[in-house]
Structure formats: C-alpha cells, structure tokens
Amino acid sequence: MRRLPVYLLLDISGSMSGEPIQAVNNGIQILHSALRREPQAHEIAYLSVITFESSVKQLIPLTELNDFQPPSLKAGGGTSLGGALDLVTKCAEREVIKNSPDSKGDYKPLVYIMTDGEPTDNPDKYLPAFKAYKWGVVVACAAGSGANTAMLQKIAGENVLALDVCDSSSIAAYFKYVSSSIVVSSKRVDAGGEPGSVSELPPPPPEISLIKF
C-alpha cells in the first residue's frame, strides 16, 4: 500500500535551547497525536525526524504513526542547514518507494523545515540535488527574526512561513499548521494532482505570517 512520507527537518542548534526546544518537543507530540486521530493520515502518513546542529542526523527513519515515539530533543551546536538538505535528499532516495511493476510507489514526500538562525554551512552546495528531487510539498518556517528567510525562499519558494518570535505559543501554532497540512495532503482534497503550494493547504494560523512576494 502507498505511504505518504513526511520529513520533519528540525534545527536544534544552541540558539534553540530552553523554551524553544521544549516547545518543539511538545509540538512533535501534539502533531503525532493529532495525526493519529485523522483516519487518512493515520493510515498512510509515515514520519521521519531529521535534526541539524553542527552535525546532521536522521534521528527517526520513516516510521508508521502507530510505532512512532516522539523524541526528546536537546539543543546545542551550529546550524547545518545545508547538511540537512543533503541528508533528507539521500534519505528520500533510499526510503521512498518508487512505483514499479513489482511494487506500489509511495506518494511524493512532504518536507517541513524549521530553523531559527543563519546556516553555518553552505546550503547552496546541496540545493540543486534537493531541488531535483520530486517532493510533494516543501514548507520552510523561519522561527523568529534571526532566520535567513532569503535562503529559506530559495529552498521552499513561496512556501515560507515566519514566526515573529520563537516562543512556545508560536512553535505550537506551527506544529498545528504542519498537522493540518499533512491531513489535507493525506486527503488530497481536489485530486487534481498532489498539493504543491501553501495556497492549497489550510491557511496558517494567525501567529504565523506567510511571506508573499
């Protein structure tokens, strides 16, 4: 049966310590329990968590919701956003099943990136390969004013969300948004193909502003 792979790319650099990282942990839990209450998402969504600080790690490979254990993340280190793009591309190439005569292919994966600061590596290096992969939706969230929104726009096009401040209520709102967005994608309301931009997903809650050009 086809799966809907969802990659959460989370910045756990030093600047996220304290309230923000706790809010992220809480957000993942809320996301997980919200998805379990939505029948389509419950059936097809598979979650993976990729964290980035000075190093990059796929903390949780694509996992069925029933088996997913929300992690307890700790913050510290730099912001290897480029490394995260590289890793998610490699993970998707390895984990996402392509449609073939022998197997039902997965739906195009969804990517949700959240970062609060300036990348400490060179994301441009990994951008072409990331862009070449056929993602369903890529959404980037600039948490607070320190994030490099210009870089996020290069990654996610118009799907860049901005949190004015990086506090627990805006992070919670972001995860609520991610959850509605995954639910809508799992239902794929209008069937005219896979969702491609934020305008087809539910509108962001008031705490989040959608950067428009």
Binding site: M1, R36, R37, P39, E43, N66
Partner: peptide, 21 residues
Amino acid sequence: SLAGAEKEGYWFASAKNFNKS
C-alpha cells in the same frame, strides 16, 4: 481509544484502520 473523534467513513473504509485503529 478514539474517544470523541467523529466516525468519518474512512476509519471503516481502510483495512488498516479497521484492523488496528
């Protein structure tokens, strides 16, 4: 386990949900 959730048809439509959820 799904206390309070709406009985949207999909819960029963999908074999996996019907079996496990």
